[in-house]
């Protein structure tokens, strides 16, 4: 063919069409070819070092559906190592916290910051569904960021509440009291909330109908104060402050509570007020470890109203 080449010395392939149309040899630049073969070499090397092939027949064990590279690297292994590193950092704090009481944790600024930061997730998982992401409460569920506590806001009481849960009770008075008495008591409660003082007639009816048995002689929900500062309550609301247990509060709301009570079985319109127990001994078995309850106690206490 070369002897017929009408374009000698041109470096063509010897393929001609239509007299002068021909294919030339224009090889890619050397650097390009080097890069190309280097890429191929990279690919081969990668296939040897890292998992790249699916499992060979009979090699699959159901869990690892691939051929391992000789480095033994897998993404899940790397992930687990990462988790281990994080756990190692957390362990230092967690070990200290395990030995401490909630009060001691609050005294230590570093541990307090750690507890607040890491319990945020716990609070989001277990508490925020009812009490709101920042403890701002929801209709029917108490605000945790204020200083009004049905069962006491000390660290001990908060631990108790989280561990064992709470279930308040108030009799439905729709059939016990007359409409006029209910009306008068509702007005009395609204007066108490607004200025802390109720009418004499109101106080008289309050005592006569036995409200003080639960809400206390001063209507503040306290039945007795213990020498250590803790209060004895049955979870009845403090009627003298401006915070309403059942929102929106006010006359209509108070009347509803008096009429239908709280947690009364068989009463259709009764108020629901149940907090489940979160300890491992509680009804919801295995919910939270003592360590988690301890940290959540600190977290709730620090939301703004701990006592």
């Amino acid at each position: 063919m070369a002897e017929n080449n009408p374009f000698p010395g041109e470096n063509n392939t010897g393929h001609f069409w239509d007299d002068n149309l021909r294919e030339l040899k224009n090889p890619p630049p050397r650097w390009w070819m080097i890069a190309f073969w280097a890429s191929v070499a990279w690919w081969v090397l990668y296939a040897i070092l890292y998992p790249m092939w699916p499992a060979l027949p009979g090699q699959s064990d159901g869990e690892n559906d691939f051929t391992r590279g000789i480095l033994g690297w897998t993404s899940i292994k790397e992930y687990k190592q990462g988790v281990e590193q994080v756990e190692a950092v957390r362990a230092q704090y967690d070990e200290q916290i395990a030995e401490m009481t909630p009060a001691e944790i609050i005294e230590d600024p570093g541990l307090l910051q750690y507890t607040l930061a890491s319990s945020k997730v716990l609070f989001g998982d277990y508490c925020a569904g009812c009490h709101g992401s920042g403890g701002q409460g929801n209709p029917g569920y108490p605000v945790l960021a204020d200083d009004d506590w049905l069962y006491g806001g000390s660290l001990g009481k908060i631990t108790e509440t989280i561990s064992n849960g709470r279930k308040g009770a108030m009799t439905a008075h729709a059939d016990i009291l007359t409409e006029a008495e209910i009306d008068q008591l509702a007005n009395f409660v609204v007066d108490l909330a607004e200025d802390g003082e109720g009418s004499e007639a109101g106080w008289a009816l309050y005592n006569e109908k036995g409200c003080q048995a639960c809400h206390g002689a001063e209507a503040n929900g306290v039945l007795a104060e213990l020498p250590n500062g803790d209060i004895v309550t049955v979870g009845a609301a403090n009627l003298t402050d401006s915070i309403w247990r059942f929102r929106p509060g006010g006359y209509e709301s108070a009347k509803h509570t008096i009429k239908y009570g709280v947690n009364q079985s068989g009463v259709e319109q009764t108020r629901d007020a149940v907090m489940p127990a979160f300890s491992q001994q509680g009804q919801l078995e295995g919910k939270l470890s003592p360590q988690q309850i301890k940290m959540l106690t600190v977290y709730v206490h620090q939301l703004g109203g701990g006592q």
Partner: peptide, 18 residues
Amino acid sequence: HERAPLFVQLSDGSIQNK
């Protein structure tokens, strides 16, 4: 400023922000 809750009413009627 804490956004949830934006503010909290305390039992003495005062308002608290976090």
